[in-house]
């Protein structure tokens, strides 16, 4: 469980987080959503201790997340970013096993685990021995997921994981990923700007605007009971294109 208490962060003149209070429960999928610059990417980095807030406290399972504790805590979290963030000088297998090898886990266990995860994420086994430059966008994202799951983390963090993919691959991966998350029963935190994606994954959706939480709840609430006109506007903006086609028929 993450707890944020009055967390603020500024980058020069830009307010990324403004006095945010938030609790993220275990075992559920929480999605941060909002327009560009609303602070959703800052928020997920603050949770991992990649960015230290100017004010306020972040706690994970009761212990504060700070410069001293972050490195250990990150080993209990898996992280997937847009484009995968794979190390180009290592093969897919090298990427996935880097941290486990650094920690000195037994080689046999490591390779067993990689194969298991490759199967889970539908990654072809020959792809494991290729370099990132030799993989397709979807494969790269799956490798990033294998890397994130390698140390059996309690939490999985995903920052725009489908941003760089074409629509068909994106759809396949989304469906597949949701099944995996449900099967694993892990705490998942995801950042996206796509309301459909948020609704598809999220048990709990957090809408941010200019560093503040505007509304939080299941997707139904956002459609049926928007807390302010901005919410309504944000939802409808993304529905307009499809709806306008439907109106025309």
């Amino acid at each position: 469980m993450f707890e944020l208490e009055k967390v603020s962060k500024r980058f020069n003149s830009l307010t990324a987080l403004d006095d945010v209070d938030l609790i993220i429960p275990n075992g559920r999928t929480t999605v941060f959503i909002g327009p560009s610059g609303c602070g959703k990417s800052t928020l997920i980095r603050v949770l991992m201790g990649l960015i230290e807030p100017d004010h306020g406290v972040v706690r994970y399972e009761g212990a504060p997340v700070n410069a001293g504790s972050a490195m250990q805590l990150r080993r209990r979290m898996g992280y997937v970013i847009q484009g995968g963030g794979l190390f180009p000088h290592l093969t897919a297998r090298g990427n996935a096993t880097l941290m486990a090898r650094y920690l000195g886990h037994p080689t046999e266990d490591i390779y067993h685990r990689v194969d298991e995860l490759a199967e889970l994420t539908h990654l072809p086994s020959d792809a494991l021995d290729r370099y990132p430059a030799q993989l397709s966008g979807g494969q790269r994202q799956r490798v990033a997921l294998v890397r994130a799951l390698m140390l059996e983390p309690d939490v999985l963090m995903l920052d725009e994981p489908f941003g760089a993919l074409d629509p068909i691959v994106r759809y396949q991966l989304q469906t597949h990923l949701r099944d995996i998350f449900r099967g694993l029963g892990k705490t998942v935190v995801m950042v996206t700007h796509d309301i459909g994606e948020a609704g598809f994954f999220g048990d709990d959706i957090v809408l941010l605007r200019e560093g503040r939480i505007v509304q939080r709840g299941p997707i139904r609430d956002f459609v049926d009971r928007p807390s302010e006109p901005f919410v309504e506007h944000f939802i409808s903006a993304q529905r307009t294109l499809i709806d306008s086609l439907e109106d025309g028929t």
Binding site: M48, L50, M71, Q72, R74, R75, M77, Y79, I81, Q82, G83, G85, L86, F87, P88, L98, M99, Y102, R147, M157
Partner: peptide, 16 residues
Amino acid sequence: PDIVEAAQAIGLPRLA
């Protein structure tokens, strides 16, 4: 920068 961040995020110490 995303590579640098990924290296941090998987929990490698600075020297590693």
